[in-house]
Design a protein around this nucleic acid. Structure first.
Lengths: 228, 228
DNA sequence: CGTGAGCCTTGATGAGCATCAAGCGGGCCG
DNA sequence: CGGCCCGCTTGATGCTCATCAAGGCTCACG
């Protein structure tokens, strides 16, 4: 892959790569491959042998699983400057644990597993960075398991809306839904119908105003209280 | 904590500690504390400041969260020779992400966070071991999220029963449930009533035979097929 | 400008599971 | 031995959410 300075700067800002030396970065990029992904195009399949992990430069990728009946649960929506599938680095038999597919047209960088592992062996700070990142992911998983097991669909929708906001947001705030509603529904483990009805009932109660992919939260504090 | 050779041997068999030098092991144990835990006794609370992670030597500990209504979801049941709460090692602000409580009377070792981190800095193989372990945990989380989002309670119960078996088990096999049914139910995110009814209906269909905490799977292959 | 496809919404219905309530049975202690 | 507590089971009921079906809106394309 062609090294270019914009990319190098982007890498340096990422937790996984920021502790690498200049030489290590170049080694890594030399083994990396750029990749375009169309909407709906499959990047990898659950169980497929894995030799690369990825970074999103533009667009959006979904990581998901399917039930036997073809129902889809999106485990994660990956956005620009985020990496995914790093966990294949440390498997004895590296296999992608989910399906990966483009949601919007996306531009990716594919990093080589073996190359990164070799570099890791010589960069203890990077090792720690990976550990910290995996810890954060595990936190997210705990939270997701909790909401799936203990909370109803209404809670999940409200929680999702609040999650789109700044932590510091107050009063009346607008957000744009970051994907089609079908996608968001599959992420929240509800049907599109239920998502639609939930947004409607929140509107009817005066908690939000919703038109298309714009949602205005009338009163953030009130909505936050509403969850408990 | 008193160093003793049985304990040292137990440690050496554990993935987290097996790559440590003799000296490192002694450092770690010097800062470790033994701890007894009664059934129902709280070890730590969700959000509590965390300075230690743990190993179970005997008994059973549950890691769980509670909903606002007091419903309990057990995230993990920890058994002898397993460690837990390692993820607090790499948090900026170390806080336990779940409640921890004794299920059966338990004997624990509490390891000091700072001491282990210092040792980690000098043991790259241990670093890799931690990464591999966290990767395995993440796999389990994916699977759990999938079953919660995409599968019904019957599936989860059957899946749990099959998970108690050897991977190689065939034909007619008996297992002893490893905890009270209330506990298993809270682990599977169903009510005790639903667990009871599910086992009954599996019995009625001739797939299992169930008396007390003994469950006999009449035909493992048939039950495995039954799930899909 | 009309047509069709895909996404979203809305309504009617039903399945699955929690809830509430009652009864059973085993183990522990007086 | 008798009584009680607790865990488990079973039944009756209702809520939540998925399913199925239909209609509207938007946008791309002829």
């Amino acid at each position: 892959m062609q090294t270019n300075s914009a990319l190098a700067r982007e890498l340096s800002r990422h937790y996984l790569f920021c502790a690498l030396t200049h030489v290590q970065q170049e080694q890594l990029l030399a083994s990396a491959v750029s990749r375009q992904l169309a909407p709906g195009e499959r990047l990898f399949s659950h169980g497929e042998r894995a030799g690369q992990f990825f970074m999103v430069r533009s667009g959006c990728v979904k990581l998901y699983r399917l039930s036997a009946e073809g129902h889809e649960k999106i485990m994660r929506l990956v956005r620009p400057s985020q990496t995914f599938a790093e966990s294949i680095l440390f498997m004895d038999v590296p296999q992608y644990p989910v399906h990966g597919e483009g949601v919007e047209a996306a531009e990716l960088i594919a990093f080589d597993r073996e190359t990164f592992l070799a570099i890791l062996r010589e960069s203890f700070p990077t090792c720690l960075a990976v550990l910290a990142q995996m810890t954060r992911r595990i936190q997210v998983h705990w939270d997701e398991i909790e909401t799936l097991a203990l909370q109803n669909s209404r809670y999940r929708v409200v929680h999702y809306l609040l999650g789109l906001l700044d932590r510091t947001a107050q009063g009346r705030v607008s957000v744009t839904l970051p994907a089609r509603k079908m996608v968001i529904a599959a992420h929240l483990a509800v049907t599109p119908e239920t998502l639609s009805r939930t947004l409607r009932s929140l509107s009817d109660e005066g908690l939000i105003e919703s038109t298309g992919d714009e949602v205005t939260i009338v009163d953030v504090e009130k909505l936050r209280r509403h969850m408990h």
